[in-house]
Amino acid sequence: MVITISDPLDMHLHLRDGDMLEIVAPLSSKTFSGALIMPNLVPPVTTKEAVNEYKIRIEKAKKEHTFTPYMTLFFRSDYTKEFLEEVKDDILAIKLYPAGITTNSEGGVSGFDLEELSSTLNAMSDLGIPLCVHGETGGFVMDREAEFIPIYEMLAKNFPNLKIIMEHITTKEAVAALDRYDNLYATITLHHLYITLDDVAGGLLQPHLFCKPIAKRPEDRTALLNVALGAHPKVMFGSDSAPHPRNSKEAPGCAAGVFTAPIALQALAQLFDKHGALENLQSFVSDNAKRIYGITPPSKEVVLEKSEYLVPEIYENSVVPMFAGQSLEWRVVRAG
Rank of each mutant, 00 (worst) to 15 (best):
L271W: 10
F237Y: 14
D273W: 14
E250D: 14
S283I: 00
A215I: 03
A242S: 15
A267F: 09
G253W: 02
F237N: 03
F284T: 12
P252A: 02
Q266W: 03
G253I: 05
K216M: 04
F237T: 02
T222Y: 08
F259I: 02
A289V: 09
S283P: 02
K216A: 09
V258W: 07
P213G: 09
A223Q: 02
A228C: 07
F284R: 04
N280P: 13
Q266E: 15
D240T: 13
A255P: 07
K290V: 12
F272H: 08
H232F: 07
P218R: 00
R217E: 14
F259Q: 07
A228F: 03
N288K: 03
A242L: 06
A269P: 06
Q282N: 04
D240A: 06
D240L: 01
P245Q: 01
A277R: 15
T260Y: 12
R246K: 13
K274C: 11
P218T: 07
S286M: 00
A255Q: 03
L229K: 11
N280C: 13
N280A: 14
G238S: 01
A261W: 04
G276H: 13
E279D: 15
K234W: 05
F259A: 07
L268R: 06
A256S: 15
E279L: 05
V235H: 03
K234D: 08
V235S: 03
D287A: 14
L271P: 01
Q266R: 07
A269Y: 11
K249L: 07
T260L: 01
R221C: 11
N226L: 00
S286N: 15
A267S: 05
H244R: 00
F272P: 03
A264Q: 01
A231D: 10
F284A: 11
K234M: 03
S286K: 00
A242R: 00
A256L: 10
K274I: 11
G238Q: 02
I263F: 01
G257M: 00
P262G: 04
D220V: 03
A228E: 01
A289E: 06
T222P: 00
F237V: 01
G257L: 06
S239F: 07
A231T: 08
K274F: 15
A228M: 02
C254E: 12
L265T: 12
A231L: 06
A277W: 07
G276R: 02
A289R: 02
P218G: 05
A242K: 09
Q282M: 09
S286D: 08
S248I: 00
P218S: 04
N226I: 04
S286Y: 05
G230K: 01
D273P: 06
V227E: 09
S241R: 04
R221W: 03
G257F: 08
Q282E: 10
K234N: 02
H244D: 04
